[in-house]
């Protein structure tokens, strides 16, 4: 079962115009979007599909107020769809659609779809850095940053779910769909990667009460920490509310910056995540500020030391 990761996340939202404004500001490209919503894609074609919550084309909502309607997983080939159908049909209904894709649900009622992946191969350099002792990554006269540098989300990275039963969730994804646990934040939950993806995680669970089940956040990969901070700064300047970051996580080593959204969950830019293979030994750490980040910053308005001398412009000093 060569599951690669999420191709699309589908939402049924309370405020469609606000969501369209948000997804555009986030840097995703609308593809065939009209007044009923549509797909907002990253550079590799993965992305977010958004519709009004009453749209009849949407899968049924969760029992909670969360707006996530379906997770669409990309797989490597039609043979992988056959393998998933054979496995999951043992104990649940799996619907084969006309295009060969599969629809079903996990053990806790999250709607799932599996399709031969729609993602496009990207051929782009990562952020380049220069450091003493290492070969320069940027050639002489090649500058690192400029005001209008591109900083677009490259690929849908991961989804984080609020789940009532961590053991049941981990069992389903690991034992039925061949995901692997890479690390665990004890008190929150495990990080998972699917077999055909070496990213530290495409999926993370956070234990919550039944009434919170849903999507906590989703993340898009950026080209590096500079792109992440440039994109985040532009987003905040447009008025969007920062939630957490920028900073860098310990598990996964990825840079992060989270923002509020009108889709009922956080949106994250991430960058420079660890890669793993099957020789990796999973780690555990208790959930908390120390375990979750190596550094955390908070954005402030641009400022520079200097400026006029003290007292300048205030007129003569009183005697």
């Amino acid at each position: 079962m060569n599951i690669i990761g999420p191709d699309y996340l589908i939402f049924g939202v309370d405020d469609l115009p606000a969501s369209i404004e948000y997804l555009t500001a986030f840097g995703l490209k609308p593809v065939g979007v009209d007044a009923t919503g549509g797909l907002f894609e990253a550079l590799d074609g993965t992305g977010i599909i958004v519709r009004a919550k009453g749209d009849p084309s949407l899968p049924a909502p969760l029992k909670t107020a969360n707006m996530l309607r379906q997770q669409v997983y990309g797989v490597a080939s039609p043979a992988d769809l056959d393998a998933i159908e054979a496995e999951l049909s043992k104990d649940r209904r799996v619907t084969r659609l006309a295009d060969g894709s599969l629809e079903t649900a996990d053990d806790q009622g999250f709607a799932l779809k599996f399709q031969t992946t729609k993602r496009r191969a990207l051929m782009m350099p990562a952020e380049k850095i220069n450091a003493p002792g290492a070969p320069a990554q940027r050639a002489p006269n090649e500058i690192g940053v400029w005001e209008d540098m591109p900083a677009a989300p490259r690929s849908l990275s991961h989804v984080v779910l609020f789940v009532p039963d961590i053991a049941k969730a981990a069992d389903f994804y690991c034992n039925r769909l061949q995901f692997v646990i890479t690390d665990t934040l004890v008190g929150a939950g495990p990080f998972l990667r699917p077999k055909a993806n070496d990213d530290h995680h495409t999926l993370f669970f956070i234990r919550t009460p039944d009434y919170m089940q849903g999507c906590e956040h989703l993340a898009f990969h950026m080209g590096g920490p500079t792109e992440l901070m440039v994109a985040g700064t532009r987003l905040v300047k447009s008025g969007v509310q920062s939630f957490w970051g920028p900073g860098r996580h310990k598990f996964g080593s990825n840079w992060f910056w989270y923002f509020n959204s009108p889709l009922g969950c956080h949106f994250e830019y991430d960058a420079d995540m660890d890669k793993h293979d099957d020789t990796w030994t999973p780690r555990e750490a208790p959930m908390g500020p120390e375990a979750s980040q190596i550094v955390l910053f908070e954005m402030r308005e641009k400022w520079a030391p200097g400026g006029p001398p003290p007292g300048a412009g205030k007129g003569p000093k009183p005697e």
């Binding site: 447009s238 969007v240 509020n260």
Partner: peptide, 14 residues
């Protein structure tokens, strides 16, 4: 934690 998604956007859609 701050509640708006952007400046002054504190209300639900309706």
């Amino acid at each position: 934690t701050p509640m708006a998604w952007k400046s002054d956007a504190y209300l639900n859609g309706a």
